[in-house]
Deep mutational scan, measured.
Amino acid sequence: GPREVTMKKGDILTLLNSTNKDWWKVEVNDRQGFVPAAYVKKLDSGTGKELVLALYDYQ
Rank of each mutant, 00 (worst) to 15 (best):
W23D: 00
R3K: 11
K42T: 06
W23A: 01
V5A: 04
G46A: 12
W23Y: 06
T19Y: 09
V35Q: 01
G46Y: 11
K8S: 07
E50N: 13
L53Y: 09
T47A: 12
V35D: 02
N17S: 13
G33N: 05
S18K: 08
M7K: 00
M7C: 04
V40Y: 02
P2Y: 14
L55R: 04
L53E: 11
T14C: 08
N29H: 10
A54V: 12
T47R: 09
G1I: 13
V5L: 15
L15R: 00
V40K: 00
L53Q: 10
A38M: 10
Y56V: 12
Y58V: 02
A38N: 11
D22Y: 15
P36K: 04
L55Q: 03
V28E: 05
K8V: 07
S45E: 09
V5W: 15
V5N: 03
L55E: 03
S18G: 08
E50P: 12
K25H: 10
I12V: 10
V26G: 00
N20T: 05
T14Y: 10
V40Q: 01
P2V: 12
L16Y: 03
D22M: 13
Q32W: 15
L43F: 10
K8L: 07
D22I: 14
L51A: 05
N29V: 05
D22V: 14
P2N: 14
E4D: 12
V40E: 01
M7W: 07
A37D: 02
V52E: 00
Q59Y: 13
E27A: 10
D57L: 03
V35H: 00
A37R: 09
E4P: 15
E50W: 11
D57C: 05
L43T: 04
R3V: 13
L16T: 04
M7H: 01
G48E: 11
D30F: 09
E50I: 14
T14D: 04
V35G: 01
L55N: 01
T14F: 10
K8N: 06
Y39N: 04
Q59C: 11
K9V: 08
T19D: 14
W23I: 03
M7S: 01
N20P: 04
F34S: 03
E50Q: 15
E27D: 05
Y56P: 00
L16R: 03
Y58A: 02
K9P: 05
V28Y: 13
K41E: 10
N17E: 14
A38D: 08
Q32E: 11
Y56G: 04
E50G: 09
P2G: 13
K42E: 05
L16I: 13
K49T: 10
L15K: 00
D57G: 05
G46E: 12
L43Y: 07
V26F: 02
G48L: 08
I12C: 05
V28A: 11
E50F: 12
Y56C: 13
S45Q: 09
T19N: 12
D44M: 11
A38F: 08
A38L: 10
G1N: 12
K25P: 01
Q32P: 08
L15T: 01
T19S: 14
S45L: 13
K21L: 08
R3L: 13
R3I: 12
V26K: 00
